[in-house]
Amino acid sequence: MIAENTVSVVLAGVGGQGILLASEVVARAAMHAGFDVKTNEVHGMAQRGGSVIAQIRYGTKVHSPLVPEGTAAVLGALEQIEAIRFAQFLAPDGLAVVSSQAIVPVTVSSGQASYPEDVPQRLAALFPRLAYVHADKLAAAAGNTRTANLVILGAMSNGLDLPAEAWQEAIRTSVAPKHLDVNVRAFDLGRKAV
């Protein structure tokens, strides 16, 4: 159905977790590696703590910025149940990188719904290739809990055929110079965690 040589990546999480930056880094890494790239992001209403996804596609020539369901090479989730919510995007042989972080939605706190207690089991059943990463711990180890997005990205990079230099260059061109070191450390910790 889709051009064979287009690689698709999906990032999922909760608005405010740094998905936009993560998606920019993937796109720039692909660009530095010489590929055509398209991304898609969510702005506006959904950014206020709702479920959000970002999509990145690269290859010799990319048409649609939207990832067709069932085709992503890698799905990265910054919050664990968001991986389940968007699992249909992943290709059957794709890599799922899931943060162990749980963010309880207000629908749960106000008693309208409940947060599943068997998340690890669900993830294991859904994803044959699963990397369950303690992203907030690793981010703290890197020096800033807000870099969990880069930890997940580092882990995801193992499932994408982009050279290490392209990733480094992408991080350098996407984050502010004063936050560069901590972001690079977070990325490296994630990359080694898989």
Binding site: V14, M45, G49, G70, A87, V108, A113, P116
Partner: peptide
């Protein structure tokens, strides 16, 4: 179109807040 998995059926909704 591949649908969200069965494991997602009872997930709590996460609307913007």
């Amino acid at each position: 179109i591949p649908a969200p998995p069965a494991q997602a059926a009872d997930l709590p909704a996460r609307p913007p807040v």
